[in-house]
Each structure stands twice: as structure tokens, then as C-alpha cells.
Write a protein that binds this DNA or RNA. Structure first.
Length: 597
RNA sequence: GGCCCGUUGGUCAAGAGGUUAAGACAUCGCCCUUUCACGGCGGAAUCGCGAGUUCGAUUCUCGCACGGGUCACCA
């Protein structure tokens, strides 16, 4: 269907291309490549596209040929015509999507390209950094750094009731620990401070008053009782509860009289009552709402303080934020934000709304449900890098097949077009797997350092050769908290059942296990220098003399020295690790246990 | 309830009218091995439903179902 749209592509460098829209992406890509840039849907090269709809392929073809024959001057004239007619082209669905969207897309890109990217993370200090928040911060950071831009931290602390002592430190610490270093923020300042919302309170009312002057906002003197009453009636009659516009059209004299009389007031945004408001989201595309569904929301409260929605817009603008990245719970209020930007005549930011991180199909991950926060995950033994890597992957997918990325690699790889529209369920198994991958990448020294506290939980023995133990542990550790269970047999042999000696694949049973242990005992006692190699050759000579498969000897050894089915390493490794005396004692114990069976 | 958004294997997901519908985790089998793991190879498994447009629909349109969000002098 798209093939019957003819376009003229006017690039910023003046190049003109003519073709069908179905080869447009290839054209854009080629042109971008020529300029040494990269084409993606989120970051097309700077270009303007003008299109013309044809009834079918054949006419499109001939029209294309026709346009191609035009002189440059004639083409430019055509472009002018299209530009002037762009709104008329709205007639059909078809035109709206193809012409207008492209037009918008490209003009937005133009404005974007002239500004340096500035993103912000604006958390409320409620005492907890949950995974969804951290992901938002990460994306904001990545987008800024990817474009050589600025990442800003702003603390939104205007909600005194929810304020939690020390919460700001949690935010600082988490961002620092994960490497999401902000370029401007409360602690380090910056050109557009202050960066704590409660310290910016003076300015908002002034801005609201400007809106009153320009007719985009008005004073409202309705008290709580009246509002409640209106709402009750609306609910009873099944209408959406909304401000009824009682004060919307008060005359200037009436307003002045009430102000003089000291009647408490709020300032409300005056929403258009007809038409629609649309905005372009990088993730969700065009979102349109009917203006009549928009409530005349409060901008300034009775106490003179701004509401969150208002403060947010003013702050974002005054801080020069170019890209707003936030949860998609704001999707439906974004038209209101944009109306505010328009009323002020400010340039709108690019919106990037992210779907939430879920616990299951119906519930969000939340503090309330006691779901994991970043701190909890750390406490559970996950590595910071692995957490960041996994969180990045939750709702975003890289272009290639690799999934393991450090933060600098993520900056390289990150692209808004990879952000997914639908919610993602937090999958602990995948996090574990990624954590395991990071653990395997650790140097032996780093592994030892991180693993030691966990080893020491169940293995106090000072004589143990830690590097050897770690070498066995590292490839089989996915998460540090599973280490204690792995090494608990070292200090003391656990009670175990003789059933462990029976292993089908190893072809062992109670009888041959006993025989193997008995045969090994003198061989091991004869080992003078108790090293891995010497233990190995001692045991293998036993295997040879008995003429059995390796497992028939080595399996019983493993069981006897560890009392466990799964161990970090084989019989030889364990024996070498435990030392001569302990190994022999445990084998004797095994023999005794088997004889009494 | 109104409005907005979403729906590809168990999970994360690629895909952009014609594909044997990628890849990763999980799962199963085989190989390696001294158990488990690591590593290697392979299998099973997915387009929510119904119409429409089209020669052809996972892809476009509409409807439905299901799920989420939002409707405060909270942020």
C-alpha cells in the first residue's frame, strides 16, 4: 500500500532524492552513510521529506519518473507547494500517516539536532530505589552519554509526607555504585540550579501568572466542599469526575473582587474544549486524545505551591531538558504537558515512555510487594555490573546477538528504537545466568576477594588453599550466596547416606565402592608429598591395578571425602584440597560406614 | 465507567506484507568430563480471537477478549 506514495527527500546538505516511500529507509541509510552517519529509525539523518499520494502503483511510477525529470528549481518549488499543503493532505488516513508523520518526524529531528541532548533523572526521595526507577535512570544516562550530552539529577522532594530520611543518600549511592554519574545535580551544582525541587519554589507562581495573562490559565475560587459536591454528583450520574469549569469564565472584575477579599484560590490550566491533542512518543508513536477529556488541572495550589505536573514542565524547560524519559503511567497526562509547553511557547522535549517492569503478568514490581530493590539484589549476591546489564535488557533489546554489555558498551549499543512497548516480567533466572557470566569473567584474584566472605560463612578452616578452592568454585558459581552450601563439607564431614555410593552412570554400588576405598587407602597413605599431581597419580595407579573405569574409584572417593553428591570439583581435587590426614580419616570413615551397612 | 496504551515460545525478545518466524535464559537430549558446573552440538516450544484489505497478513484496518495505566489542592 505504501508503494504508491512518491516522495522528494530534501536533505540538509541540499541533496534531493525522488522515489517511493518503500525505498525511503534504504535511501536515508545510504545518504546517512555518505555523510558518515548511521541511520536508525530513532535517529534518521537530518532531512526533510515531502510526499505525494498516487492512486496506484502505475501512476506512482509515472509520477516518480515525471518528478525525476524536473529541474532542481522545479523540485524545490514542488516542495514548497507540499509544505504549504501539508495540512490539506490530511484528508485520508493514508496521507495523515505517511505525509504528516514523516513531516513531523523530520522537523522534530531538526530541532533535536540543534540542541545538545540533556536528560534528567528526577526521583522522589521515598527511601528506595526499585528496579524500574533504576532502569529509567539508566536509559536517561545512556541516551545522554550516547549523544555526548548531559545527564542531570534532580531531586523532587516537594512531597513532605512521603519524604524519608536518608533517601537522598540511597539515590546518590545507587547511582554512584552503578556508575550512572550525573553531570549536574544537587551536590555538584550546575548552570541551571538549584537541583532540588523544594529550593525552586519561588518561580512557579510567576510562570502560572503569565499563563493567566495569556488566557491559558485562570483563578479558581471553588472550595473543597463545592468540588466534593460536584464530584459526587458526577459520579452518581456516571460521568467522569472533572472540574466543571465554574470559575473558568469569571470576569476580571469578579476575580479582582475575590482576590481583594482574600478568598483562597488555586490556578487552573484552561484546557481547550474541542479538537484533539497529539504528541509523538519515541516508543509509542503518535498518541492522540480528545481535548474534551482533559481536566482543567490545578497548576498552583492554595498554598501557592505548584502541583507536580506544573513544576515538572517548568523545571524541565528551565533546565533545558531535551529528552524526557519516564514511566508510561505519564502517557495519558503528556498531552496536558504539551499544552503547557505550547501555552508558554516553549520547545517541547522528545518523549520516551517506558513500559513498567513487572513481577508477573498483572503486578508491577514494587516496594509494597516486598520485591527486590537494587540493594536487595546486591545483598543477594548479585554483581552491580550484572544487575545493570540485566536491567538494561528488560524492555530493551540490542541490535546484535550479544547480550553481555558493560556500562561503556551499553552506551555504544544503546538505541531508543530498541525500547519495547510492552511490559517486561523480571526474570530472576536470567539475572542469575548473566551474573554467572560476569562471575566467570572475573579475574581469579577478584573472584577470591568477592567470594571470601561467603566461603567463610561455612568454611572457617585456615589451612585451606583458597586459590585452589576458588578455581574450582568460579565456573560453578552463578550467585555468591550459593557458595556457603558448596563449601560446608570442608570443615567437617556431614552425615551422609550410603545411597550416595550407588551411582548408575559411574557403575558403582556398595560392594565395589568399599573395595575401591580399601584399595585407595594404602596408596594414599604412601603419598609423601600431598600435591594434586601426586594424589592424582596415586589414585590412577589404583584404577589401573584394579582394571576398572575411572568413576568406580573416583566416585566413592568423592562421596567419602565430601559426603555430598554435588561438589566443587572431583575426588582428586577434593582430596588434594583437604590434605592427607583429613582425606585418609574420611576414607576410613567411609569404609567403616560401608562395612556396617 | 470514560480516555490512553499494550498482546510473538515458560521468560526477555528480533521482525516492518512473501522468512525454514532470529537470538538469549529456562527446559530436554547428546558430546566432553571424575559428580555438578563450564564448554560444544542438537531437539521441543510462539504470532490472543474474529472479520476486512491483499494473489498473499505475525506485519496494515476494524471489532472483540484479556492485561496495564490514568482520571487528586500526591509525586
Amino acid at each position: 500500500m505504501k508503494q504508491d506514495v512518491v516522495y522528494i527527500l530534501e536533505c540538509i546538505d541540499g541533496t534531493l532524492y525522488t522515489g517511493w516511500t518503500n525505498d525511503l529507509p534504504a535511501r536515508l541509510a545510504a545518504h546517512a552513510a555518505k555523510r558518515g552517519a548511521k541511520y536508525t529509525r530513532a535517529h534518521p539523518p537530518k532531512a526533510l521529506v515531502y510526499v505525494e499520494k498516487m492512486a496506484d502503483k502505475r501512476t506512482a511510477l509515472s509520477r516518480e519518473a515525471q518528478i525525476k525529470r524536473l529541474s532542481r528549481k522545479q523540485k524545490l518549488a514542488l516542495i514548497e507547494t507540499y509544505r504549504a499543503n501539508i495540512d490539506k493532505l490530511h484528508g485520508s488516513r493514508y496521507d495523515k500517516e505517511d505525509c504528516y508523520q514523516l513531516y513531523r518526524m523530520e522537523t522534530e529531528r531538526l530541532t533535536m539536532s540543534t540542541n545538545k541532548v540533556r536528560t534528567r533523572f528526577a526521583p522522589s526521595p521515598t527511601g528506595y530505589m526499585h528496579v524500574g526507577n533504576l532502569r529509567t535512570a539508566l536509559y536517561a544516562y545512556l541516551l545522554a552519554k550516547k549523544n555526548d550530552g548531559t545527564f542531570i539529577l534532580r531531586i523532587e522532594d516537594t512531597d513532605r509526607e512521603r519524604y524519608v530520611e536518608g533517601a537522598v543518600d540511597i539515590i546518590y549511592n545507587t547511582l554512584r555504585k552503578t556508575g550512572l554519574i550525573w553531570d549536574e545535580g544537587p551536590d555538584i551544582g550546575g548552570p541551571v540550579g538549584p537541583y532540588v525541587q523544594s529550593e525552586r519554589m519561588g518561580m512557579f507562581k510567576e510562570y502560572a501568572l503569565k499563563l493567566v495573562e495569556s488566557g491559558h490559565a485562570y483563578y479558581c475560587f471553588c472550595d473543597k466542599e463545592r468540588l466534593d459536591e460536584v464530584r459526587t454528583i458526577q459520579q452518581a450520574s456516571g460521568i467522569a469526575p472533572r472540574y466543571d469549569g465554574h470559575c473558568r469564565n469569571l470576569s476580571p472584575e469578579e476575580v479582582q473582587a475575590k482576590l481583594d477579599a482574600g478568598v483562597p484560590y488555586v490556578i487552573r490550566q484552561k484546557m481547550p474544549t474541542t479538537g484533539t491533542t497529539s504528541f509523538e512518543d519515541e516508543v509509542y508513536g503518535t498518541v492522540t486524545v480528545e481535548n474534551e477529556t482533559l481536566d482543567d488541572q490545578i497548576l498552583i495550589k492554595t498554598d501557592g505551591m505548584p502541583t507536580y505536573n506544573f513544576a515538572n514542565v517548568v523545571d524541565d524547560h528551565t533546565m533545558g531538558i531535551t529528552h524526557v524519559i519516564r514511566g508510561n503511567e505519564y502517557l495519558s497526562s503528556t498531552p496536558k504537558y504539551n499544552l503547557l509547553y505550547e501555552a508558554f511557547g516553549w520547545e517541547k522535549p522528545v518523549y520516551i515512555h517506558c513500559a513498567p517492569v513487572m513481577k508477573n503478568h498483572t503486578e508491577k514490581l514494587s516496594k509494597r510487594n516486598g520485591d527486590a530493590s537494587f540493594e536487595d539484589l546486591l545483598a543477594k549476591g548479585y554483581l552491580t555490573e550484572a544487575i545493570i546489564n540485566y536491567i538494561a535488557l528488560l524492555g530493551w533489546s540490542p541490535k546484535g546477538e550479544n547480550e553481555i554489555f558493560t556500562l561503556p558498551e551499553l552506551i555504544q549499543e544503546f538505541d531508543v528504537s530498541g525500547i519495547s512497548k510492552s511490559p517486561a516480567i523480571f526474570d530472576t533466572q536470567k539475572l542469575r545466568a548473566i551474573n554467572g557470566a560476569y562471575i566467570r569473567k572475573l579475574s581469579p584474584e577478584a573472584f577470591l576477594e568477592q567470594a571470601l566472605p561467603y566461603i567463610r560463612q561455612t568454611c572457617k578452616s585456615e589451612s585451606i588453599d583458597l586459590p585452589t578452592l576458588c578455581a574450582m568454585l568460579q565456573p560453578r558459581t552463578e550467585i555468591f550466596t550459593e557458595i556457603p552450601d558448596q563449601v560446608d563439607f570442608i570443615d567437617a564431614l556431614p552425615e551422609y547416606s550410603n545411597d550416595l555410593y550407588v551411582h548408575k552412570k559411574m557403575k558403582t554400588n556398595l560392594e565395589n565402592s568399599l573395595a575401591s576405598l580399601k584399595a585407595c587407602l594404602p596408596a594414599l597413605e604412601a603419598v609423601e608429598d600431598w600435591t594434586l599431581d601426586n594424589v592424582h597419580s596415586a589414585l590412577f595407579s589404583v584404577i589401573e591395578s584394579l582394571g576398572v573405569k575411572n568413576g568406580v574409584v573416583l566416585w566413592p572417593i568423592r562421596v567419602a571425602v565430601s559426603g555430598k553428591q554435588f561438589t566443587p570439583g572431583g575426588g582428586v581435587d577434593l582430596a588434594a584440597l583437604l590434605g592427607k590426614e583429613e582425606t585418609i580419616a574420611r576414607i576410613k570413615k567411609g569404609i567403616e560406614q560401608l562395612e556396617n551397612a
